[in-house]
Amino acid sequence: MSTTLSKPPTDEVILSARGVRKRFGELEVLCGIDLEVRAGEVLCVIGPSGSGKSTLLRCFNHLEKIDAGRIEVNGELVGYEPYGSAGRLRERRPRDIRHQRERIGMVFQRFHLFPHRTALQNVMEGPTVVKRRPRGEVESRARELLDRVGLADRADHYPAQLSGGQQQRVAIARALAMDPTLMLFDEPTSALDPELVGEVLGVMRDLARSGMTMVVVTHEMGFAREVADRVVFMDRGAVVEAGSPADVFTAPRHDRTRAFLSTVL
């Protein structure tokens, strides 16, 4: 358990969001979000249902368009490029957006494994189809990743033959296979039976320890407290409070944070 693989000491900013706004029709879901995540950092996002956590995460890899603000990953504007004068932006070419997504792994609440492919094929899909890497090389790496998430013996199982926890671990391996510089997790354990939550969190903990930069939307306060470097509390589309887990969990400064924590802790 000790620290052979500790985080590389660096202040390189991997993800930055400035003034991100997003509305669905009348409803303003994100009202000016500012965030920064540095290399190797784990940021946990907590907040009540409907506060815009998933939407924010989906903006980070441009699954959702934004109405205002800037999102940069690895120093590159995600989904948009400067256009004309006065800081105007326009959407990038689809191909460029795809290249940006290759470097941002995403893990969904309901796994979304490809049901018609085995665990191994799921993990190999990205590198072979998108990156067009040679199969042999991809396969041995995919087996390595499955081993890393503890599923080496399930390589040839179809998702429906796997438990929820196993499926989610395959999904994590699938995202890792693209060698992302940033991993996004949207409530990765919320669809799991309680006894399966631990195995997924365990994999994520190992991943954090290996230095992966992660943004994790979660309701697992224990995990956030233990693994997060910083915790952000969101409510009604805004960041209400941000800080170290100790600060946010033990000495919350805002009433809304206190109220929320009292319901979940």
Partner: peptide, 11 residues
């Protein structure tokens, strides 16, 4: 969600 999973891999 299947399309999104594909999109998030850069497909």
């Amino acid at each position: 969600g299947q399309r999104e999973a594909g999109a998030s891999l850069g497909m």
